[in-house]
Simulated scan of single mutants.
Amino acid sequence: MSNTPFKLAGFDIETFVRDTLAEDLGPTGRDVTSESVIPADARFSGTMDSRDAIVVAGLPIAEAFFRFLDPDIELELLVQDGDFVTPGTDLMRLKGKARALLTAERSALNTVQHLSGIATMTRAYVDAIKGTGCILLDTRKTIPGLRVLEKYATRTGGGTNHRMGLWDAAMIKDNHVAVAGGVAEAVRRAKSAGIAEVILEVDHLDQIEPGLAAGATHLLLDNMDPDMLRSAVALVAGRVPTEASGGVTLDTIRAKAETGVTYISVGRLTQSAPAADVGLDFTPLD
């Protein structure tokens, strides 16, 4: 895997590849189908291609799966993560040990399909707000264990990452407010604890001034229609960034972006993006 220089902060590619393959190979560590059907010395050539128009993401990780099982593989990436490709575009060519390629195939494809699906949906949302000056954010609605990869995919699609977890900013939501006794007290407690970035979720205009007075540094405007968003943006008057959130779709995002909000966050980017249709066909080599 030393031939795969893919680096991503907070992500250990070798551990990911090893654990993913171990899950597939189970307690015996064997691909019983390939071992029983394919001769040990057989070799394959293969081509990974897209059957849809997609934004590609995850190819270096797919490469790592194949190199892990066949260090001598001949492998060429034909496009790069972030490229938009049309249906029928070849993404990767590879040539190596048949058993190794078949064993790695599903893990490699699953990764590329999932991450490319996220990147593709993200690009559609980015395109929908083009020219408004609004920035698209992802959320923490990610599959457990895959957050770093899924947030990489949203960046690959042109989006911007929101906070990575519970550690890098305070986000005060309705349940926090209910326990604290109000938005001002909730924000005050967070600021008193020394937290620099305090994001406050508000769903009523009358929560804005108390939240700002207490020291909120970012307002999340929850489930507001465009008219209410415009009113909120006017009240904030540029004092802190504003973020529209909740129920945002491709049909509604443009109108929300045109209200002047700084950001729009969309949970469905990582929560429910459909997998891209990517395939891999092998040909035996003599």
Rank of each mutant, 00 (worst) to 15 (best):
L75C: 09
T217P: 04
G10T: 08
S265T: 06
S50H: 02
L102D: 09
R147G: 06
D49I: 02
A108V: 02
D70A: 13
A64L: 03
R147S: 13
G158V: 05
D286C: 05
G26R: 08
F66E: 05
F6D: 08
P274C: 14
F68G: 00
I61F: 03
I73A: 05
P274A: 14
L146M: 14
G10L: 08
V17H: 01
D90Q: 15
V148R: 13
V233W: 00
G96I: 07
H204V: 04
Q80G: 02
E105S: 02
L94G: 03
A186F: 10
R43M: 06
Q80H: 13
G267P: 11
A275W: 09
Q207G: 09
T15E: 12
A193N: 13
Q80A: 15
V266Y: 09
V112I: 13
T86P: 00
A22W: 00
V85E: 03
R239E: 12
A169N: 05
T86E: 15
M224L: 11
I253Q: 03
R254M: 03
D281Q: 15
D31M: 10
A98R: 06
A22R: 14
T89A: 15
S2N: 13
G159W: 01
A62R: 12
A119P: 09
M164N: 12
V261Q: 08
L285R: 13
G29E: 01
A255Y: 00
E243N: 05
L59T: 08
L69Q: 10
K130N: 06
